[in-house]
Design a protein around this nucleic acid. Structure first.
Length: 474
RNA sequence: UCCCCUGUAGCUCAAUUGGUAGAGCGAGCGGCUGUUAACCGCUAGGUUGCUGGUUCGAGUCCAGCCGGGGGAGCCA
């Protein structure tokens, strides 16, 4: 089956990169819709996922398989089309393909049973057919945006001298302290070995100790930060929390840069520069997909992103933020949760600060030590730590980060204060013994970032096969 | 884990104070059209999530279970 014409991507065809009027062209893809005209021809919209729009193929009734095959084409049929490029006589597209051959590669035998016909579907329903939803406009657009953002993240770090560190998925550390973990074991669950105290004998397990899926690569990546200076993680993360919200997944992807010889201000600068880069890149690279989200999913999302990339981020201390909130309350602003120094800011507080108070992204810094993790650097006031949250209009917290405690004596004090066992942190403490330096980093959830960029409301629709409590079908 | 909402045709939803189910879309067939959210007509398609209870009678009321969604907490 030698085909003389090399196939082109639909994106290239529509961009005029596969040739001009009269040039031969070949595309491979799936039917989105078929419309027949009694003028003796059918219009096939063919997509291959390379761009938002399908290409229109004109199939005339003179094709030898017109009656038997082309008139039976339905949504999702796979085709291999050869023909010539033509200027469209109709509206809605400039170039189309006048087919000389439409080979049916894969037919839909019974269209009545195809779960995703060309009609409106709810996102909830499409989650039940997650293996077919990437064929829809929305989910193919999400997939392209996810890919582009991921690529931009790597491009940003790589072009700025960062090394991508593959921190472990399976961790022997039971002290990462960020929520419930998924146990990793090869023990026979129906016959678990016990020791003399009738405890599970983990020495017989695969690793000879208890192991779990990672909830964060941060502690590990700090080791590489203190050797390669500028590093980042980008990979899957697992949390066994029983969280049932539109913002939580049991398996999600996270980005965690870490920079050495850096303080909190450097960290905030990095976060601002980084976010602006990936969003500006998205707007520039995928205008058709973003236009779709702006029109059908979340009107205004393009303007929101444009403003985000242009506005200078406000910097504000936690103490000042609380003072602003208290002043607002005294002037009549109502919050569900009361405000006072020492509280963790609620979502409603964060939104007020970024949306109402300053009207642009804001970095809140230096939080009370009692509401933050042990590894965050203690400030000279002994009351606050060098933590930061980046808050954005329309979403609230988008990044959380901190300067790390690099002084061993202070770190040990903090470990003791929080009733943690220093032995669990022996190698983390080693990093402070041998050539310690100030360093800082932050964490960014990929799916939440995509939610912000696209206006899609649920992170379950921003990862190909979502894992949530009681749900891991695919 | 807690609170609220919800489960009727392949999908989205109707069904008056309880009286044994309808529409739109999709699908099939036909008509019409260089069509593009096409349009017009016809046809097929349902043990109303599961189990039990109240009742002459349950999609409708009650209990339990299972699933879905939203919010809270936790966080990314």
């Amino acid at each position: 089956m030698s085909q003389p014409q090399k196939p082109s991507r639909v994106a290239a065809v529509l961009a005029g990169e596969a040739g001009g009027e009269g040039d031969p062209v070949r595309v491979q893809g799936w039917i989105r819709t078929r419309r027949d005209s009694k003028a003796g021809l059918s219009f096939l919209h063919v997509h291959d996922g390379s761009c938002f729009d399908p290409v229109q193929v004109v199939a005339e009734s003179t094709l030898d398989n017109y009656e038997e095959e082309i008139l039976r084409l339905t949504t999702a049929c796979a085709v291999d089309v050869t023909g010539t490029l033509a200027v469209s006589q109709g509206k809605g597209q400039s170039l189309e393909i006048l087919a000389s051959s439409v080979e049916v590669v894969g037919l839909v035998e019974d269209p009545d049973t195809y779960p995703v016909p060309a009609k409106r579907h709810t996102f909830e329903y499409l989650r039940e057919v997650a293996h077919l939803r990437p064929r829809t406009n929305t989910f193919s657009a999400v997939a392209r945006v996810r890919n582009r953002i991921s690529d931009a993240i790597h491009r940003y770090f790589q072009s700025n001298g960062f090394a991508w560190i593959h921190t472990p998925i399976i961790t022997g550390s039971d002290c990462e302290g960020a929520g419930e973990m998924f146990r990793v074991s090869t023990l026979d669950l129906t016959n678990v070995p016990r020791d003399e105290n009738n405890e599970v004998d983990v020495s017989q397990d695969f690793f000879g100790r208890e192991t779990n899926l990672t909830v964060s690569g941060q502690l590990n990546v700090e080791a590489y930060c203190l050797a390669l200076s500028k590093v980042y993680t980008f990979g899957p993360t697992f949390r066994a929390e029983n969280s049932n919200t539109s913002r939580h997944l049991a398996e999600f992807w996270m980005i965690e840069p870490e920079i050495a010889f850096a303080d909190l201000a450097d960290d905030a600068d990095l976060a601002e520069d980084f976010l602006k880069y990936i969003f500006a890149d998205l707007l520039e690279a995928l205008p058709d997909d973003m236009a779709f989200f702006d029109k059908r999913i979340d009107p205004g999302c393009i303007e929101r992103l444009e403003n985000f990339t242009k506005a200078a981020f406000e910097r504000m201390d936690y103490t000042e933020a609380v003072a602003c909130l208290e002043q607002a309350v005294s002037k009549g602003t109502k919050f569900e949760f009361p405000v006072s120094w020492g509280i963790d800011l609620q979502s409603e507080h964060e939104r007020w600060l970024t949306e109402t108070h300053v009207g642009r992204p804001i970095v809140v810094m230096n939080y009370p030590k009692d509401i933050k993790a042990f590894y965050m650097r203690l400030n000279d006031d002994e009351r606050t730590v060098a933590a930061m949250d980046v808050l954005a209009p329309g979403i609230g917290e988008i990044i959380g980060g901190a300067q790390r405690e690099e002084r061993l004596d202070v770190l040990d004090r903090r470990i003791a204060e929080m009733n943690l066992d220093p032995e669990d942190y022996w190698w983390y403490r080693d990093l402070r013994k041998y050539g310690t330096v100030p360093h800082a980093g932050f964490g960014l959830g990929l799916e939440r970032t995509l939610a912000y960029a696209t206006g899609m409301a649920n992170v379950r629709d921003l990862i190909p096969f979502p894992r949530t409590p009681k749900s891991a079908t695919f």
